[in-house]
């Protein structure tokens, strides 16, 4: 169809090819949006909690993305990859919030480091809203996490010399919600706005984590007695 339209115009062969490419690119851009969330995150200003924590980012967490396929005419498919930003953000926050933090990558790490507990964050849900759907001039992102504190021994699979998260019984487990929004702005693309809203949501998640951590059932007992509370 694009070819027929171009044939009807008095354009040179090169100009036709260029125009075809531009039209196809515009059409592709109209039907899907891909955001790889990026941002810079500040180190929190806190007095560290006096415990030694291992942090385990699961593969699912590291590669987390929200996929929303268009279902009707005029809708746009969205793919929002938050995994890189999640790891970057929490890797900045945890070492400032806890006195001693090690990132657990393997079974060998678990054996090598003596930590009081292992913290496992998981993204339970991410939702978004854009002005096209809500008629409100803000882009919004909601995130919901499940966090768990477990004894290091609980995730050791000695038989296979591996980390296993099956049948884990955390001594503290809690949900964490976060919200970020950014208003529409002149010359700002949907992609930039969603990225900014996601960065705001991550910052909000950190604020929520820092202000609520000590109120999580079981956490205060553990901090007062890290060796025995579990």
């Amino acid at each position: 169809m694009v070819g027929r339209l171009l044939d009807s115009m008095t354009l040179g062969r090169k100009a036709q090819r260029l125009l075809t490419l531009i039209i196809l690119l515009v059409l592709a851009a109209c039907t899907s949006r891909e955001v790889i969330v990026e941002g810079t995150f500040p180190t929190p200003l806190v007095d560290p909690v006096p415990v030694s924590v291992g942090v385990l980012f699961t593969q699912e967490f590291k590669e987390h993305e929200l996929v929303d396929d268009a279902t009707g005419r005029g809708e746009v498919s969205w793919r929002v990859s938050t995994g890189w930003a999640q790891v970057e953000f929490w890797s900045t926050l945890f070492p400032a919030f806890f006195q001693n933090v090690v990132f657990i990558e393997s079974y060998e790490d678990l054996q090598a480091y003596d930590v009081d507990a292992v913290l496992i964050p998981q993204v339970a849900d991410v939702q978004y809203a854009i002005p096209l759907y809500t008629n409100v001039k803000v882009y919004e992102i909601w995130m919901r996490y499940n966090l768990a504190l477990v004894e290091p021994e609980q995730i050791v699979d000695a038989e296979n010399a591996a980390i296993s998260l099956e049948n884990v019984q955390p001594f503290a487990e809690w949900p964490l919600t976060a919200y970020g929004k950014t208003p529409t702005a002149f010359m700002q693309s949907d992609i930039d706005a969603v990225n900014l809203a996601a960065v705001m949501a991550l910052r909000d998640a950190g604020a929520n984590f820092i202000t609520s951590f000590l109120r999580v059932p079981g956490v205060m007992d553990w901090i007062e007695n890290p060796e025995e509370a579990q």
């Binding site: 500040p42 180190t43 929190p44 200003l45 007095d47 910052r203 909000d204 950190g206 604020a207 202000t211």
Partner: peptide, 26 residues
């Protein structure tokens, strides 16, 4: 510089709240 104490969730709404915030040494 003061993250996370001036985020939309945590920003003080009154000067009295700043007093409470100042109890944190950092």
């Amino acid at each position: 510089a003061l993250y996370p104490w001036f985020e939309p969730r945590t920003a003080p709404l009154s000067i009295e709240s700043v007093g409470r915030l100042m109890m944190l040494p950092s």
